[in-house]
Design a protein around this nucleic acid. Structure first.
Lengths: 232, 232
DNA sequence: TTCGCTGGATTGTTCAACGATCCAGCGATC
DNA sequence: GATCGCTGGATCGTTGAACAATCCAGCGAA
């Protein structure tokens, strides 16, 4: 939701942007969803955990119906799994899900980078690369993770498509949930730091085909690594 | 939702399929959503129309809260637009939305066809082509529309990705809503009937690059046509 | 061991209520 | 005559309570 708005504000003209701002008054259900998204991303809620409506409602001091609406939203984003009459659970990685996620990423990331983008969008990609470098010298493991996500988000951002942006945001949220910090040791980041640099350079040089090929190769290798770590 | 389940059943093994079927007991909220989806696709609810919670609740004989849940689901699919404290409205085509939709289609359709697919998936594409031909000789305008949607759905189906399938299903639902039969006259279908045939032939012949190029060209032209018809 | 029952817990759904917000209309003021 | 501010009605947002439906674990009987 936050991502959708962000994308919208970036793309619409000034007038409609002003009309759309409309004082940010996130509904209670949205704030509950946001809180849960945060806890999911932070690893506070681990995959498979059961979320009881009444408990969450009491913890957050809202009504059960409101929690229910938040659950519906997160279930639509594949972060929660609703099992009728049993409850909602934090989504777990099923067989084939890793491949599935990477199939989507290959489709939209490669397509976006192959179409190029405006100078400021390319600058955003470059900014993410630099952000990663800074995190590396600072030994900021957490920062490295976000930087990488920003990098791939910026790549999809090249297409300037609201829909692609929200799709990518959801995929990234899923990855934050599944491939949590625990599995992300420093050596894991070593490769793609320079790799991102290469991709970004090719993009800046206008060598879109090569950039796409590099990105595709990275995604294939990344899928392989993740598959090796987690069960098939 | 129906699409997600369909995709799931296709991909999972027999055991888990049996475990997942679990007697189809769609919740009331889901049935409401399904009914609204139907009315949207059928053009019974036109873009911009306002949907009042109380009215829908009474019409369908369900509670307002249940309608609310259905609204949330459809809003997540971009079929409805929720404006806080004002109501929910059937989504309307904003500036840039046509381009946005086709950007997504280019990404996932071209990517799917370029990766090829198993023989039965290719057979599904062929089946959609034949379905279109039959509808043509029968002068079934409505059937032509569905056949084309089935064709492009089958193309994405090549990738055998649950996520891509649901994304595509949502996009197709949006197109049903926006580009309704009214705008779809017979001459509109004339081109792509043989075009689909060409694409399918190339796919069957294993000429994936050429199939991708043909598909891409079609999508570009289709976007141009739609943009010409509706406002930019 | 297996089967069937039972009780408790949780979800699914409904209903009624109240405050918050928006919108149209209407009158007052300049 | 146009603008401003108010007011009332309609609708949404949220809550709390209630009850039926469903699931699950445990227990006893065959």
């Amino acid at each position: 939701m936050a991502n959708a708005d962000q994308g919208k504000n970036e793309q619409v003209g000034l007038d409609s942007a002003r009309a759309r701002v409309r004082m940010k008054v996130p509904s209670v259900a949205e704030r509950v969803a946001e809180e849960l998204r945060y806890q999911l991303a932070e690893g506070f809620l681990v995959p498979g955990a059961k979320l009881t409506e009444a408990t969450i409602a009491e913890d957050l001091g809202v009504s059960r119906n409101t929690v229910r609406e938040a659950f519906a939203e997160l279930a639509g984003e594949r972060l929660l799994l609703r099992q009728p009459n049993k409850g909602v659970f934090v989504a777990t990685l099923e067989a084939g899900d890793i491949h599935d996620v990477y199939t989507v990423r290959r489709a939209i990331e490669v397509s976006s980078i192959r179409a190029g983008g405006s100078p400021d969008r390319i600058a955003a990609v470059r900014a993410a690369v630099e952000e990663g470098k800074r995190a590396a010298v600072a030994n900021d493991n957490e920062g490295l993770g976000s930087a990488n996500q920003h990098f791939h988000g910026a790549i999809v951002g090249l297409a300037e498509s609201n829909r692609l942006n929200t799709i990518m945001a959801q995929i990234l949220a899923e990855m934050r949930l599944y491939f949590h910090k625990a599995t992300m040791n420093a050596h894991f980041y070593s490769d793609w730091l320079k790799e991102n640099e290469h991709i970004c350079s090719a993009l800046e040089a206008g060598e879109l085909e090569r950039a796409g090929d590099l990105l595709l190769a990275y995604l294939n290798r990344s899928e392989q690594q993740q598959t090796a770590i987690h069960g098939e």
